[in-house]
Design a protein around this nucleic acid. Sequence first.
DNA 1: TCTGGGGTCCTAGGACCC
DNA 2: TCTGGGGTCCTAGGACCC
Length: 394
Amino acid sequence: MDAFYASVELLRYPQLKGLPVVIGGGRRRLDEALRDAHADRPLAEIPVAAFPVLRDYAGRGVITTATYAARQFGVGSAMGLMKAAKLCPQAILLPVDFDEYRKYSRLFKATVTELAPQMEDRGVDEVYADFTHVPGGQREGGRVLARLIQKSIFERTGLTCSVGVAPNKLLAKMASEFNKPNGISVVFEADVQTKIWPLPCRKINGIGPKAEIKLAKLHIHTIGDLAAQPREWLVDNFGKAYGAWLHDASRGRDNRAVVTESEPVSISRETTFDRDLHAVRDKAQLGQIFTELCTKLAGDLQRKGYVGKTIGIKLRYDNFKSVTRDQTIETHTHDATTIRHTAGLCLKRVNLAPRLRLLGVRVGGLMKMSDFVQQAVDSKLATTPAADGNLSLF
DNA sequence: TCTGGGGTCCTAGGACCC
DNA sequence: TCTGGGGTCCTAGGACCC
């Protein structure tokens, strides 16, 4: 989906169309204040001048999405709001409204599934779809079906997307970047030399900032440079698995399947504080935030129908270094008190002297609640319920 | 004035077991 | 003086992605 969060915001604030708008921050509900101030009129009629702009923002946080108009100023995803404010002080800043984006996410995915049922979920704004067995899916190399999907999504949501069609996921992902926004690009195996090799290595999904730096030190900048290296040399420099993968990826080879179903591995909650907190001096506040994270996490698990048995914490210090600790308990749980207690034990195992900027709580080792109940029923525990009410676990 | 929140996967060492 | 070979689970950190 093109500039997804921002595009969803423009649906309710069409008066912002064409203007630099960024989504980010979010601790202060700027949009609520805005709506309160203009409660007497529809959202679409709130004057542009009434919207908060980056210039007036002094908080912590990053941009999650920028409209294409904002990108003209060099503003983009993952950029700190303070830096963005320097580049484009007049950009309108809206807080993240994840519930709203999830609503549109479900809508566009339902649309894709109706046309191409073999769909893999890749997060809130991205999917892979397998055209292979869709009637007409091969017409014009997939372009016809891509157009139909774009049109259907637009009719249903008012949102645009970009589609890449290729023989595999690796190439399709790269192809989807070629004609943004609202574009379609078809890449065949035979196009790898001309269309893929000139690109920087970083364009490969799986080569991040660290690998890019290491490759640059070895004088490898483009995917073509990478493809010119012997497999053994890449294995020697990047390890058996990653080296071999780099070799395949540079040639556009990828045999991963489109995975239509998957189970979550972990569920977590984390928060960055408005200001760095100290374990002793801000004990009360920290304790309250900690409990709240555990309560929300327990709620997430219960709502989604999972229990887990590895409870963990994550801290980020004021120097941005992170540490994690986790502990596996006897029985799977989704109970806030159990999570809070175990996470508390984890917290005792880390250095709490430096100031903290982030605290997170995670539950892994997940199991479906329904399987957990079934397992208990199958075991003696449930066939001979204890007098003290073991079944209350459920 | 730096740098969100929610994830997955990989690596590597140690415990423990057969 | 020498001390196997597998396997699984747990834990910590880190790269990467949306």
